[in-house]
Design a protein around this nucleic acid. Structure first.
Lengths: 121, 121
DNA sequence: CCGTATCCGATCCGATACTG
DNA sequence: CAGTATCGGATCGGATACGG
């Protein structure tokens, strides 16, 4: 892992694991199990393949995700959350709620509707 | 708030709220209630006053923290978590656990001991 | 004690092109 | 479909100095 800084507190460690623009979204996208790179790319709007691969590599190094690689062509790889990643998912789900709350407050429900996100309680 | 990007997903919103090196630590540091700037600065090793103030300002703009300002000298200000901040705290506490797990796995318990963090279950 | 301003190197991330 | 390499602009964050 690339915790190069002097990590003297648990939250600093985790910051190293989730920093970057896309990592929480990748975790969320993996919530339902094994997912191919192409599926991830489709699921996360606007991410580039480069950033997706770069972040996945870092997340693998920090033990949040892992992957299995099939043989033969076309190549097939599946990424999935490790146990640590699943624990992180529980934090990400709270963040998701916070973001939804915020968007509802701001009257941005149209965006949520378009994505089929349920925000009614 | 400075959500300048086109925010089309809840996690992107929250990323805007917590990005930066110190924000999760600030949230954690505020868990026990109102805290002065000086206390925060003492509680978060290595943070500079500039970064602390900058992050607090951003967090205030995104509705995670708020502050009350006393009158007279010496100046006294107290920062505290809003309801949104408290919800975020519940995610931060999970991150804290993940970080502790990681440090225990790596045999870095000495650092946890020094900080008086309980990692025994 | 609280808060602001500037400067500058380090890092991040998007675009793009390319390989197996 | 999966993955790598490079380049350049934008952003981040630490040092430092100053002001209320």
């Amino acid at each position: 892992m690339i915790i190069r800084e002097a990590c003297n507190c648990p939250l600093e460690v985790v910051h190293g694991m989730i920093k970057g623009k896309w990592k929480t979204m990748i975790v969320y996208q993996l919530k339902d199990g094994n997912t191919s790179l192409a599926e991830l790319e489709r699921g996360i709007e606007q991410i580039t393949q480069k950033m997706l691969l770069q972040h996945l590599k870092e997340m693998q190094a920090s033990g949040i995700v892992d992957k299995i690689t099939g043989e033969g062509y076309p190549l097939h790889v599946e990424y999935y959350l490790t146990d640590r990643g699943k624990k992180l998912l529980s934090a990400v789900l709270i963040m998701q709620e916070i973001g939804i709350d915020y968007m509802v407050e701001q009257g941005q429900t149209e965006l949520l509707d378009r994505k089929g996100i349920d925000y009614k309680r």
